[in-house]
Design a protein around this nucleic acid. Sequence first.
DNA 1: TGCAAATTATTTGTATGCAAATAATATTTG
DNA 2: CAAATATTATTTGCATACAAATAATTTGCA
Lengths: 166, 166
Amino acid sequence: MNTLRIEYEYQKNWLTKYTKKVNGLVLEIFDSVCILLAKAEQKHFQFTKKMLDERGLGITPGQMIILYTLYKQDGESITELGKRCFLDNSTLTGLIDRLERLQLLSRVAVPGDRRAYSIYLTDAGRAIREQVTEVMESVAQTMLAGCSDDEIAIFEKVLRNIFDKL
Amino acid sequence: MNTLRIEYEYQKNWLTKYTKKVNGLVLEIFDSVCILLAKAEQKHFQFTKKMLDERGLGITPGQMIILYTLYKQDGESITELGKRCFLDNSTLTGLIDRLERLQLLSRVAVPGDRRAYSIYLTDAGRAIREQVTEVMESVAQTMLAGCSDDEIAIFEKVLRNIFDKL
DNA sequence: TGCAAATTATTTGTATGCAAATAATATTTG
DNA sequence: CAAATATTATTTGCATACAAATAATTTGCA
């Protein structure tokens, strides 16, 4: 008896609705929506890193988000920037260090407050805007290929709900 | 003219369907579904960490996933475990170190292959199974509160699609 | 059999992320 | 005005993650 039997069992509880079973045993961890969310984002992060690399942009996914936030509005303090991209100051220090080293942004002293800096995009930072957004567009298209507009709308709604509820 | 005007504009492109505008400017970065996914997971991770902490389980979200994977099946090699929880060996080394230090699992030498270890849950590791799954259930319920069964089913389907496509 | 290639796990280096502690500067309050 | 408090950014420590390099061992092939 060395058969491989694969079933999908309907779940009534908090587990994802259809659970994969191999020879009667659930081995796959995606029966938890928590793990499914974490692993989808893990793949998404790695894929974005690869795309940025292939495009030769020389930036990482985290740096991309900072740039995207600055494209909406730059010249704010590190704390204000952190509020818009939902990152702690201690995380931003390193990210801004690396982006400054790449000469994509610069810390500018704030007149009247010697503790603070304003973060401004440089010309080089502004110059890669189209390429950065193109990568994000491309990643979104790839990962959502095969999903209908309605499904995508619901997906976004649930993500937004998760962000707001937690 | 110092009014605060907030609108939501319908988008036809790759951006999320409804985009928040403040005085005509899009400042919010959630008009990108990529960022929305990343930030929802970021919140999810932090919330899970907090829950595990409050429950006094003494483990982290990453360790929780390893335990969940082992509850499905233990006694496998590190490489095999990594395939089921989608983690690199180099990531697992540290996670397993910490879980072994907590005496929740143990590395057992494999007879016939002196390179490999089998990873087994300890009694203590098995003892917290209910509490670990309860935390995951609780996180899922909190983050999906207010979503219908249909919406959740679609959400899971899209996450699965993302994982498979990337 | 003996050497090349593959496998297994670890180490090192880099990039997120947060918490807590720190240092410098501003603000508030008595 | 001076001391207490708050704010701003950084540093340090810890926890994920992967890539690339390493070490030990096993497998495959000639």
